[in-house]
Computed example of a mutant assay.
Amino acid sequence: MDMRVDLLLDILLAGLLLATLVYCFVLNRRLSRLRNAKGDMAEMVRSFHQATEAARGSVAELKQASDAIGRDLQEQLSRSREMLEELDLVTSSASRVADRIEKGVEHARPVQDQRSAAAPETQTEGRSHAERDLLQALRKVR
């Protein structure tokens, strides 16, 4: 009986050793995959770092471009404001001149009415074509 127990224990020990051997083999394969994945991961991290640096450079270039565009727009806005002020000045001057012309026409109208009563055909004789056009335009505005 002693032999049977020894044999049974030897078989059990051999089975456990075989199970340990299989487990070590599986563990070795998993560790190999992990080492390979570590290399792939390092490559991925390097690639990510390069992409990050390229993006950082692009952001800096975009910032410079937007600053330049902002300065150009500010210059154009300043020039536009200056032109607007100049245009307002010209418009107000033109309005004053038009008011003076209108007052002159109104002042001349009673004299002209007296002349037209005396000689209706001489109403347009003394005026140039430009003067007649200007008077017609002023009459239309009223």
Rank of each mutant, 00 (worst) to 15 (best):
S32P: 00
L135R: 01
D2E: 15
Q112K: 04
A119G: 02
A137G: 05
Q123M: 13
R81P: 01
V26W: 15
R96F: 06
T20H: 08
G57V: 12
L34Y: 04
A117W: 11
G15I: 13
R81I: 14
S93V: 09
E86Y: 08
Q114M: 05
I69Q: 06
T124N: 08
L138V: 10
I101S: 02
R29Y: 13
R109T: 09
D67Y: 01
P110N: 02
S95P: 01
L87E: 13
L84C: 02
L21G: 11
A51S: 12
E121I: 03
A65F: 03
S47Y: 07
E125Y: 08
S78G: 03
D67T: 06
A55I: 03
A42D: 12
A68I: 10
V90D: 04
Q64N: 06
M41K: 12
L27A: 15
S58T: 08
S93G: 06
D133S: 09
L77I: 05
A54N: 10
C24W: 11
E131V: 05
G104D: 04
L62G: 09
L16E: 15
D10P: 00
A94H: 02
T20P: 01
F25A: 15
L134Q: 00
T20Y: 09
L17C: 10
M41L: 15
L62N: 11
T52W: 11
L27D: 12
A54T: 06
R71L: 14
A37G: 11
R29D: 14
L89W: 06
R132G: 01
A130W: 02
V105K: 00
R96D: 14
A51C: 07
I101H: 02
T52A: 15
M44E: 11
K63Y: 07
G57D: 14
M83L: 10
L7W: 05
G126K: 04
P120Q: 01
R79Y: 04
L16H: 08
Y23C: 09
E43C: 06
R100E: 10
